[in-house]
Simulated scan of single mutants.
Amino acid sequence: MSDTPRLHTAGTSTTLLDRARDLRPLIEREAATAEAQGRLTTPVVDALHEAGLFGIWVPAPLGGAELSPRELLAVFEELSYADPSTGWVVMATTLENGTAGAYLGDDAVERIFKGPRMPLIAGQGTRPGTAVREDGGFRLSGQWGFASGMLHAQYAHSLGAVEGTDEVRIFITPLEDVKMLGNWDVLGLRATGSIDYSIDGAFVPESQTHIFTENEPLRGGAIYRLGVLDQALICHSGWALGVGRRLLDELICYAGARAGRPGQIADSDAFHADFARAEAKFRAAKALVLETWDDTERTLDSGRTLDVRQETMVRLALNHVTSTLAEVARFVYASGGTSALRDGLIQRLFRDVHAGTAHITSGPQVLQECGRELAGLAPDQSWMIFTLEA
């Protein structure tokens, strides 16, 4: 097991955040092309690699930056501000790169992380396929949906239930074992290449698998003691922060360009009040996210794991910022008039928000369970993914 109990602090987070910020002009220029082709463009993917941004979650012993939760939030916020699809691809692939590096066996890590570039791993961690144990590993079969970033990946990350047991594992397979189903025709996040895929009886060595709920890393520090699910909450929280801020900033530009013209929203008292409310709601939701992850970092850095209330709060903070983002998007779209209706940035942001907020991590069941725990109605229960159980 890893002998590094504390969060990793390499002093590189500011540099990586600056690199992400420096890529904004390129990402913005390429966004329309990426949307049309259903995947990020080659110049953007190459630039992300060159900036080291696909390694931000990979354990330091494997050459990654192994950023802390707050540092990851900042990078995802910056990239998602530039383009929601770019932020989504980076958050999804870096999560799966990082957890593979932390939890897979030594043989697998040697194979996967030996190249000059960080590998990109993409897939689906819900709705499991079926795995049959055999000598040295498993035979994996199944079909998975919404594999974020799959068109950019070299490996698939797939959830599978081991036949005849209660065991659920993550399986990492080379893309040659994957059949792409080519059905990414959606309202928003079109440039993420999040297609469905299937695997039919591929052999997966045991070292290329790990228990889904694993929270004791073989390499790397305390962030990996969150487990896969809680780490995924970092992804979606950072994404919501970036997209929400961009929506409000675009509305500021829209209103400012119309100042002084009769009948425009810039001169509307009602708009002024509504904008103030939207700004306050979004800033408050962001403050809850940052406060919650500050508390989480202190716990991890002390060598402890999260208690039930902290597990509740990381889920609640994501759920709240996600619902707030949806409110902000509706307000900005309605305020943008015909400019929002036509093809353009506000319209694309609106569509991307309503794709991203449909993710299972921010669903109504999670909110209900959070409320039950906060109200003291779940004594002696613990979080099992999205529900509280005794």
Results as ranks from 00 to 15, higher is better:
1 M>P: 09
3 D>Y: 08
8 H>M: 15
8 H>Q: 14
9 T>M: 09
22 D>H: 10
24 R>K: 13
28 E>I: 11
28 E>C: 12
36 A>N: 07
51 A>H: 02
52 G>N: 10
53 L>M: 04
61 P>Q: 07
68 S>C: 06
70 R>N: 13
79 L>D: 11
82 A>W: 00
88 W>R: 15
95 L>H: 08
98 G>A: 06
100 A>N: 00
100 A>I: 05
107 D>P: 01
111 R>C: 12
115 G>K: 04
130 T>R: 12
130 T>A: 13
140 L>Q: 06
141 S>P: 03
153 A>P: 02
158 S>W: 01
158 S>Q: 10
159 L>R: 05
164 G>E: 07
169 R>T: 10
172 I>L: 11
179 K>V: 15
192 T>M: 05
196 D>F: 03
204 V>A: 08
206 E>P: 05
207 S>H: 03
209 T>I: 09
214 E>K: 02
214 E>I: 08
215 N>H: 15
223 I>L: 15
224 Y>G: 15
232 A>E: 15
237 S>Q: 06
241 L>I: 15
250 E>C: 06
251 L>I: 14
256 G>M: 07
258 R>N: 13
267 D>T: 13
277 R>N: 06
286 K>N: 14
294 D>L: 08
294 D>M: 07
303 G>K: 01
314 V>K: 01
316 L>I: 01
323 S>P: 00
326 A>V: 11
335 S>R: 04
336 G>Q: 03
341 L>D: 03
342 R>F: 10
344 G>D: 07
358 A>E: 14
361 T>P: 01
374 L>H: 02
381 Q>S: 14
